[in-house]
């Protein structure tokens, strides 16, 4: 469960000027809900996920995860409730370490102990986990992650993000860098993990049809604000064309404002 209240994020442009990227944004996501976040480039989608994960600080507002106010927590503290996959397949894994070491690192959140990290029991468990990906990685546990393909590496990152069953899963265009076949595979895995573990998920995507088919709810962002929030009946009856229409309307408002400025 995520509750965001009047979150404001801005970046300083120097000389006292601020570029406001999230404008008093409020959003509440119920436990087990899958939300697709769509919107044009620069709308603030990634910034919203960054704000939830703690990568960027809020200037104002509150963020609660599972009822805990984590607005002031550092990114590594929030990671206890948050699993994350970014667009870049290199971002989530340590390439110079083995698949097994990466999985062992991700399998538990929090401080580490002076205990052997990958005894045979753990190695067997991780082999079972990675076998779920259906990519044959279970026989390559002792290979370095840098030797995996982008698709394999992103699938591994996804597994690492969900293996500890976090309260919230944040996915930011996590299939955008993959070829269509791999993107399909990783999407299917994503769907399966979310269902199997009953995860609460926020998925940023530019793929409208996927957004419609995979999520319980669609949130459209524009210019740091939520301009549409569709769920239930509204979402079920929505079409790709309908979404594009909504986009146009939002953009049209921009053009109108531009015209105001030029006058």
């Amino acid at each position: 469960m995520i509750e965001i209240e009047s979150a404001r994020v801005s970046f300083s442009l120097g000389a006292g000027e601020e570029h406001v990227v999230l404008k008093n944004l409020s959003l509440s996501v119920k436990e087990g809900q899958t939300v697709s976040i769509i919107g044009s480039n620069g709308a603030g989608k990634s910034t919203l996920l960054n704000a939830i994960a703690g990568t960027v600080p809020l200037r104002a507002g509150i963020i609660c995860i599972d009822g805990v106010d984590c607005t002031r927590q550092a990114e590594w503290e929030r990671a206890r409730y948050v699993g994350r996959v970014r667009q870049n397949p290199l971002a989530g894994t340590a390439g110079a370490m083995t698949i097994l070491d990466n999985l062992a690192l991700a399998s538990r959140k929090g401080p580490r102990r002076l205990k052997i990290a990958t005894p045979p029991v753990i190695a067997r468990r991780m082999a079972e986990e990675v076998a779920q990906l259906g990519m044959g990685l279970e026989s390559r546990l002792h290979e370095n992650v840098s030797r995996l393909s982008g698709g394999q590496r992103q699938a591994l990152t996804l597994l690492m993000a969900v293996i500890s069953k976090p309260a919230v899963l944040l996915l930011d265009e996590h299939t955008a860098a993959l070829d269509p076949a791999n993107a399909e595979k990783v999407s299917a895995l994503t769907k399966r993990f979310i269902q199997e573990f009953g995860l609460t998920a926020l998925i940023v995507t530019h793929d409208m049809s996927r957004a419609l088919s995979e999520a319980d709810r669609i949130v459209m962002m524009h210019d740091g604000e939520i301009i549409a929030d569709l769920s239930g009946e509204e979402k079920t009856s929505m079409t790709v064309a309908g979404l594009v229409d909504l986009f146009r309307k939002a953009r049209g408002r921009d053009y109108a404002e531009d015209r105001d400025l030029l006058r």
């Binding site: 990671a79 699993g83 989530g92 340590a94 070491d101 990466n102 538990r108 580490r112 102990r113």
Partner: peptide, 20 residues
């Protein structure tokens, strides 16, 4: 050990350590 593996990951990709 867990600490040692995490240390190796830190030099490789700090983000993977933060995510843990």
């Amino acid at each position: 050990t867990e600490v040692g593996i995490a240390m190796g990951a830190l030099g490789d990709n700090e983000n993977s350590v933060i995510q843990a």
